[in-house]
Nucleic acid binder design. Structure first.
Lengths: 161, 161
DNA sequence: GCCTAAAATTTTATGCTTGAAACAAAATTC
DNA sequence: GAATTTTGTTTCAAGCATAAAATTTTAGGC
């Protein structure tokens, strides 16, 4: 990048190791996600996106606006609409008007939603613990810290957290 | 897990740090994926799944059976069908019969597919290098090595690699 | 008060993804 | 060699995901 006048031959591209790491991250994510999705389906008849939405709402018990929800989960606006639609059909979430702004909608878990999510979250945490049991607690912390500073976006802004 | 007779109170759940790491991995993945998807769309009018398929085919220039492809990419069979359909419509891949097995199909890149993928892959590697520039090369190796041994599946089988 | 712009959400079109079912061909078993 | 099982692929229905357009409401500028 900034090194001038490098020899043409045998220049180990500095991006190569980044690429290898990225493929590794991707593989790990897919492995864990596949397992979690399968278990959520079999044990709770639900999906990862539904779990994610409920998780966000559980942590914000007083509800979230649709736009806040989609920003938190890093998914598109229109996406959240459908998931919340289905969760509401199942009686796990509900939409209520925001007083003072007739555009906005506040979504929250129903009582049943809270109870249901507690059961799911307990199992979910146990599963993740099993699946990542190849790393002990301090190593988890170490890898987490490194990943936190890994991603740099665009014009050098630090993105994460 | 194996510790007997722990005090009930203040038992730091050993799964907590795994969970935190998992959420961090997920966040990192989504951040990078979103950026790569956007750039593939803008610069090459393509998508990540298409890029992934072409990448697998590029590394296996003599072609892959549909089933091999879906196993490599860790996605479902039916999924690959649609992506290859569209890539073939665009003249980037082609299906040919496998001699000796009339069920199977071998997919490969066309000449145009190879050329097109080379352009995309060059940009892709550069992008990943930028996006993960928060870690230097040895740290990339370190994190990669740790992640390689992180995931343990089901009955204690080692899953990865 | 109007006009324009911005904000919050939904709708639409398209593509990705899964699991299950359907189908055909190959391999195995008896 | 006929019946069964397995393998390779596609089709299907449902849900997930995006970007872009459309709607409705709010907020500012004049």
């Amino acid at each position: 990048m900034s090194a001038s006048l490098k020899r043409e031959a045998a220049v180990e591209p500095e991006s190569k190791e980044s690429l290898r790491l990225w493929l590794r991250i991707l593989k790990t994510t897919r492995l864990v996600e596949a397992e979690l999705r399968e278990r959520l389906r079999v044990n709770f008849n639900t999906t990862l996106p539904r779990f994610d939405v409920m998780s966000a709402l559980y942590r914000n018990r007083d509800g979230l606006k649709m736009s806040e929800l989609s920003k938190l989960l890093m998914v598109s606006n229109g996406n959240v609409t459908g998931i919340v639609d289905r969760l509401s059909d199942d009686g796990l979430t509900l939409r209520e008007a925001v007083s003072g702004d007739r555009r906005a909608m506040r979504v929250r878990l129903t009582t049943r939603g809270v109870e249901e999510f507690r059961r799911q979250a307990e199992a979910h945490e146990k599963w993740v613990g099993e699946l990542l049991s190849g790393l002990d607690t301090p190593t988890c912390r170490e890898v987490g810290a490194l990943l936190s500073q890994a991603v740099i976006r665009h014009k050098g802004e630090i993105t994460d957290e």
